[in-house]
């Protein structure tokens, strides 16, 4: 077999504070194929974000390595663009400017000025934000900000798109709308995506595989669930789908029956 597209090999993470040392992650082994949509789900504090930040290069793992197309990941880069939970748009730039700052940096040498402009507009159109390109972040809604955050990440043409609870701060209706957009974009572009979520429905609806993590400290992968639902998936049809219900039940069972948040009376 050829080398895996994205491989986590024996990832372990320890945080040190003075004399105290806590093991957050241990023995994470995971292989993600090209074009796959993988969700990472688990209770708060199980190290999901830590794992995503290690892949993003923002954190260095204590043990083990991440390989992307056979190369070790050891610093942040546009090939692993991140959609941050709180959108992280720069407030002094317009919607256009926020995407353009990434495009100009990543494609400054390979694309002409006009090509870069077209590419920015193309990505804004992809998330349906082209008409608001001259607005500043504080002038648009939370859902629209997150759309721009997604456009900025997509515009870098990442090998893996990392999403850190991208819809966590949004209301339910906006979230559903954005999930549909992400599914549509994923179907069209075939990105490899790794997404953190708290939301069982979101994980099952969007993913090819759901990676369920045990509780921290010393969290690791508890179980991986293949979601065999055919694409394109439609929210309404899935509501009564038996396979969807089975997957959903499996994740719920893992999270709330087998790995309930332990009562930390001692801690």
């Amino acid at each position: 077999m050829t080398q895996p597209y994205l491989k986590f090999e024996q990832i372990g993470m320890r945080f040190r504070r003075g004399q105290m040392s806590t093991e957050v992650l241990r023995d994470i082994d995971l292989i993600i194929n090209k074009g796959e949509f993988v969700s990472l789900i688990g209770h708060s504090g199980c190290g999901k974000s830590t794992l995503l930040n290690i892949l993003g290069g923002l954190l260095q793992s204590t043990t083990g390595e991440v390989f992307l197309e056979g190369k070790v990941v050891d610093e942040p880069g546009p090939d692993r663009a991140i959609v941050f939970q709180n959108h992280s748009l720069l407030p002094w730039l317009t919607v256009y400017g926020n995407v353009a700052i990434a495009v100009d940096k990543v494609f400054g040498k390979t694309k002409s000025k006009e090509e870069r402009h077209d590419w920015v507009m193309h990505n804004l159109e992809l998330v349906q934000m082209a008409q608001a390109k001259d607005k500043r972040p504080h002038e648009v809604s939370g859902g629209m900000k997150q759309r721009v955050g997604i456009a900025r990440a997509l515009a870098m043409q990442p090998k893996v798109l990392l999403m850190d609870e991208p819809f966590g701060a949004l209301d339910a209706l906006t979230r559903a709308h954005l999930q549909d957009s992400v599914m549509e974009i994923h179907a069209r572009l075939g990105n490899t995506v790794m997404m953190i979520t708290h939301d069982v429905d979101e994980a099952v609806l969007l993913s090819d595989r759901v990676v369920m993590m045990t509780n921290g400290p010393s969290a690791t992968i508890g179980e991986i669930l293949e979601i065999g639902l055919p694409r394109p998936r439609r929210r309404l049809e899935l509501a009564t789908d038996a396979e969807y219900a089975r997957c959903r039940a499996a994740v719920l069972e893992f999270l709330y029956a087998r790995h309930r948040v332990p009562v930390r009376a001692a801690a």
Partner: peptide, 29 residues
């Protein structure tokens, strides 16, 4: 300056000088 802005700068790999002009100064205005 919020860590988020620094993370964005790190992901798109801005140089020290670009971080100064495009992130630090405007964020501090």
């Amino acid at each position: 300056i919020p860590q988020d802005y620094r993370n964005v700068a790190a992901v798109i790999r801005l140089s020290w000088w670009e971080v100064f002009w495009k992130i630090t100064l405007p964020a501090t205005v």
